[in-house]
């Protein structure tokens, strides 16, 4: 799975959590919780959704890596062993 495919998957999972959000306007380097007004239940559902979509179990200690979209995609790309750059 390429980095772009992983990014698209992350956005799809976020879209299910924040259906009102304009995902095209999301900034890669800005705090996701602030951009999408996520609470701790949303964050839990986010990692559950990523696990279901990508098969990656994200330990709680790694949650900070998902502070931004770019950070999350980078983390998942490494965990999935993706080889194609964006």
């Amino acid at each position: 799975m390429t980095r772009d495919e992983i990014r698209a998957t992350v956005l799809r999972v976020l879209g299910a959590i924040a259906p009102e959000a304009d995902l095209a306007a999301l900034r890669d380097d800005v705090d996701l919780r602030e951009q999408l007004d996520l609470d701790s239940m949303d964050v839990l559902n986010f990692v559950v959704g990523l696990h279901a979509a990508l098969g990656v179990e994200i330990p709680e200690a790694d949650y900070p890596r998902f502070a931004t979209l770019a950070g999350g995609v980078e983390y998942l790309t490494a965990r999935r062993g993706a080889d194609a750059p964006a």
Partner: peptide
């Protein structure tokens, strides 16, 4: 506790 639980069963402080 959460390290022992699958992601779908994790607990929140709330």
């Amino acid at each position: 506790e959460n390290t022992r639980r699958p992601v779908t069963e994790r607990l929140l402080p709330g």
